[in-house]
Write a protein that binds this DNA or RNA. Structure first.
Lengths: 111, 111
DNA sequence: TCAACATATGAACAGTTGTTCATATGTTCA
DNA sequence: TGAACATATGAACAACTGTTCATATGTTGA
């Protein structure tokens, strides 16, 4: 079974796949609750209950969003007894947040 | 979620308003069509017709999305006769795209 | 002025999304 | 084993979003 030679892929098509995945990635960041969760986790791992408490939201809502973040590989769970601790899965997550925040803060300060 | 109750801000969290604006910003990037438009404009300004042609989409759909990008200050129009040329409005736009792309490409290459 | 062109807009529709409520799963300790 | 706890999941519902179709606005040159 031969392997796919990426060099032979039409360069425009390859770009499209990346751009599609990029828009899918941004969809995960495009929710207030999820951004708050990710931001909270930049300070280190947290369990679901503490996250729900910090965001003043129901446990179910937070758990649903953690599921989305987990499925996207942005967040990683670690079980310890009854408690599940979540942490950022990738150093890129922080960089993406920072790139956006830079723009947002720049705009808030009056362009 | 259209508004924020400032009274509920938790001091331990990052500025909620910034995080809210951040999620709103990501919403604009969270669409395949808009990402393709922004990506196309990284190569320089383009008129609506050429954008529609490049994306193989209807003029109306592209125009609607340009409106969203305009309203978000990510894109700037320049009229020249009948034609309107659009370009990226902010050097940050490119940085945000790059930060996400880095993650996407990293994942595609097998983590 | 009119016709041709480039872009913008409004309405409507289908598809998607995030929350809540109720309940299920999984874990610990008495 | 059973009760209490921590988290996950499914269904349902309202709210939101992107496209299409039709039409409006704005611009140029005859």
């Amino acid at each position: 079974m031969d392997q796919i030679d990426e060099a032979k892929i039409n360069p425009e098509e390859k770009d499209l796949i990346d751009l599609y995945n990029l828009s899918e990635l941004y969809k995960v960041f495009a929710d207030f609750t999820r951004v708050r969760i990710l931001s909270a986790l930049t300070g280190g791992e947290m369990c679901v209950y503490n996250l729900a408490e910090a965001l003043e939201m129901g446990q179910s809502a937070v758990s649903h969003q953690l599921r989305v973040l987990r499925a996207s590989g942005l967040v990683r769970p670690r079980r310890e007894g009854k408690t599940v601790y979540y942490s950022l899965d990738d150093e890129h997550v922080n960089e993406i947040l920072e790139a956006g925040l830079e723009h947002v803060i720049h705009k808030r300060k009056g362009l």
